[in-house]
Design a protein around this nucleic acid. Sequence first.
DNA 1: CGTCGTCTTATTTTT
DNA 2: TAAGACGACG
Length: 723
Amino acid sequence: MDYLARLNDEQRLAVETLDGPLLVLAGAGTGKTRVLTTRFAHILLTKRAWPSQVLAVTFTNKAAREMRERIAAMLGSKVEGLWLGTFHALGARMLRRHAALAGLEPGFSILDTDDQLRLLKPLMQEAGLDLHRFPPPALMGRIQRWKDRGLTPSRVTPADDDTDFAQGKARALYASYQERLASVNAVDFGDLLLHATELLRNHPDVLAEYHRSLRYILVDEYQDTNLVQYLWLRLLAQAHRNICCVGDDDQSIYSWRGAEVENILRFEQDFPGARVVRLEANYRSTAPILAAAAALISHNEGRLGKTLRPGREGAEGEKVAVIGLRDSDEEARMVGQRIEALRREGNSLAEVAILVRASFQTRAFEERLIAWAIPYRVVGGLRFYERAEIRDAVAYLRATLRPGDDLAFERVLNVPKRGLGDAALRRLRETARAQGVPLAGAAEALGGRTGEAFTRLVAGFARWRETLRRDGPVLCLREILDESGYLEMLEKDRSPEAPGRVENLKELGRALAEFETLEGFLDHVSLVMENDENAAGDRVSLMTLHGAKGLEFDTVFLPGWEDGLFPNQRALEEGGAKALEEERRLAYVGLTRARLRAIVSHVASRRFYSGWQPAYPSRFIDELPEDRVEHSGSTMLEREAALSAPAVFASVFPSPVRLPRVRDVPEAGGRNARAAPIAVGARVFHQKFGYGEVMESEGDRLVVRFENQERPKSLISSYVEPA
DNA sequence: CGTCGTCTTATTTTT
DNA sequence: TAAGACGACG
């Protein structure tokens, strides 16, 4: 039992409290994952259950993988047959087992966002809606929210559909959307859990079967569960009630995706007799960082209440830096310089992260990092499955496997170009509908050149189907890519992305080789597969705050702490006071990612759309404890902006009026101060305009005549560098 | 059917 | 500003 000895008292309690409902409130950096995996291993090692009798749910594939690896490490061998995965993957697994009971055929497809919209759009048109006034993605979002709440079309009440969105047709459209899905034997992402839950609700025998087989349930990141996930869990836990949920209400940041913090706040009522264990000893961050995070989050109401305390004695460290700067370029320069300095001191770049509120902020940093040859990676962005070439290849595979998969067929119909455009597709749809056959079955009906192209494609699919049957999926994919002309299309493509796309397809082929059946692989691709290209290497990580949850770094830069951007104005408009608290939790998540140092920055002027807009320090900065924070930077500009400009963000929750802070002294060494003003006659360099000569100079404004520009340009001096 | 130019609209996005 | 969507034209 030496694995128990490695835990502190509270962690140990969380691991050993095995019977009955348990809520583990795990503050940031308190060893949440360790508790979860140790608990899992403990259940197995004490022979309380077999691996197949424990259900462990996470939100991300990454978390699931990490858990799997750590359990294997603890047990000394890989464990098979675990019910361990994301909510969606487990939902899919259940649904495949009982497809017929959910009104599906066993080989149903899982649709991506494109497919969903392609299905919904025509329905909206038929309903006579103006798609400009009611954009399909907006309706899709509403449907998704209903699904998050476990509402099938028949369960949606008028109260759930209280706006006149889509002229009151939203509910009806939801119903017909679900019908269309069923008719093409497909589900969307939200359906995986909705159907799985309905399945358990409507079939007591199936539920009883799971009650018999699943004795323990472990849930990670419980604060991010939505209602349907909660219902699913509750159904499964009903009988034995051995459910252990781990989470942190202070890190709930996905309400806009349907997550309900209430789930965690309500846990003790939902599961009477529940025990609660708090993990509060933080082994990650220095005392100032912890104190700053704690002070910040204390401004939220309705918390379950936890206080992070340093897990180690003497974990003093640098104060949290708060730096005011002129604009985002200067902010990027400051960050770049500090990263340079860290690198010179021998720090690993993999231990540095820049965490932004909104993805557009990454650009300024990318430019700076490229210019200074600092390796970085942008985390997040497109997932493997979301890449066009992967979707195309998958659609080819889907249409090969399932002749009736019209959505897949439609997607690849004209990729590569075969002269089959909108008009042809429309005729094809009509014929197919009239004859009651899938699109691919209607090809012969069309005459002329279009018909020929169609027939050729359909013949191709027949051939590939034969290859799939005879030689398996790998050869089939190769044949598809060759014979369809897809690979040729990419090879002819001279754009810089093309080689990467070819590479991605190769990667797809390699992954495919690991699977016995194409069906299994298709699920893997849409539910699990991720792209981990450039994951390795000593690089700075650049990502959104949302993307950073669960990660930690020695050094964390938190730029853009300005009212309007962070807390985000749009979020506040939509979600009111609750949204402000969620933004604050996001700030808390950001701060607690840092082990040794956190650098918060804000600028006086930020670029929005076209022009520059004055910006004000985030109210969150005021909520940091003065004695743990060190302010620096050019606040003169901040004051100027504050005094001269009208409020940019007419906030529903106005930031308190602030007095200009008296701390105009630039940081020692003038790191953030501009070099001497650029003199008239100086030669300068501009990213876009190239080299030029300064004609006039006043304050930070310059007039420059560039060599390859006819007219002199007026610009701000921070845009040019002395040449 | 494909290309070019104009118009439009700018958060976060685990699956 | 700058990328993506859409409609008019060739």
